[in-house]
């Protein structure tokens, strides 16, 4: 809960429009839930991005869970192994500009999302 507020603040600081702020916060909420359900909990980091004149906001989710055997499958709408609606991954990807999933070198999964102004 506190994380969502913090992420909202960051999205505001990055100068995102209200609709993009809302999309980003929704994606973060979706992915945070994913991390808890599938990854057994994890770490959320978020911050501002600066690339030349471009400003943005990012969030990374890192867990020590079993990892994702088939990332492409996990990104498909309706695919779910948990108790959600199966929109978690594919849905969240549509709400952000950048979406990246990779194996955590120490086991588990790292998801990184970003949206630019």
């Amino acid at each position: 809960m506190r994380a969502r507020h913090r992420v909202r603040e960051l999205a505001q600081q990055a100068g995102l429009r209200l609709v993009d702020q809302t999309k980003f916060v929704t994606a973060v909420s979706e992915l945070a839930r994913n991390t808890i359900i599938h990854g057994g909990g994890g770490r959320l980091r978020a911050g501002l991005l600066l690339d030349g004149a471009r400003q943005g906001v990012y969030a990374t989710f890192e867990d020590d869970g079993p990892g994702i055997p088939d990332v492409q499958m996990a990104l498909t709408d309706g695919f779910s192994t948990g108790t959600g609606l199966g929109l978690g991954f594919g849905g969240a990807r549509r709400l952000v500009n950048d979406f990246d999933v990779r194996d955590n070198p120490t086991g588990g999964t790292i998801v990184r999302v970003a949206t630019w102004r």
């Binding site: 609606l85 594919g90 849905g91 709400l95």
Partner: peptide, 12 residues
């Protein structure tokens, strides 16, 4: 309105 837009994007 922004919630409606996000909801549809999310696929809900």
């Amino acid at each position: 309105p922004v919630v409606a837009i996000t909801l549809v994007d999310l696929g809900l």
